[in-house]
Amino acid sequence: MLEIKCLEVCHGWVQALRGLSFQVVRGEMLAVLGLNGAGKSTLLGALAGLYKIKKGDILLDGESLSGKPPHQIVKLGISLVPERREIFNSLTVIDNLLLGAYHRYRYKKNEVIIDVVKIMDLFPALRGKENHPAGTLSGGLQQMLAIGRGLMARPRLLLLDEPSVGLAPLVTREIMTTLAELKKTGVTIILVEQNTAAALKVADRALVMERGGIVMSGKPRDMMENSRVQQACLGRTRAVQPAAAL
């Protein structure tokens, strides 16, 4: 479904991605792990069209995304839920969700309204807060809203950048459970996480990034016990304790 070929992205003089290549198959959840500055968020930004590609290409079902602006990439079926949520604080929860379907609202209004109901079913904690300004929600609810807004675009590929950051373990577990439910519906997901244990528990496959490149990839079960993963993701050599982390 998604093919990344020798991807290179620079932030000014700094090369953030160094010849990255990998594929994602339809319906898969891929966890991208690594320490701060490894290039994980840059990878998602490049997929969403926020950063210019210096070299290489990104193919979505065979179509190149190189040079396409973010609003066109959303139309093609890639939706990014950014780190820090980036919701529209002074707009209501409902408005945030409706705007998530910006590219199809005018033509498929009824379908969009049905989708809002589905999002509310997916995140029942948002019920009763439809008309609240989004900025007044708790961090966990804002994260749910951000994911819901991303889903309103009906993406083929959902990109999640650190959805657990700043959240209580209980809320993190709720969000990860929802992501696992989402995966069952066939949505392809790339999950960037620093909470290695949480990500490995729900992902089908994981890759580890370091200094803009991929240093390892494989099945979550194999990664759990791998000391190289601990070094790359936690900066120390200690096995991940899945039960404790979630």
Partner: peptide
Amino acid sequence: YTGKAVRACVINRTAALLIGIN
């Protein structure tokens, strides 16, 4: 709806880009 899309651009330009607003 268009007015709210404009407000979305004002509140958070990057987020507006990410939901498909040009």
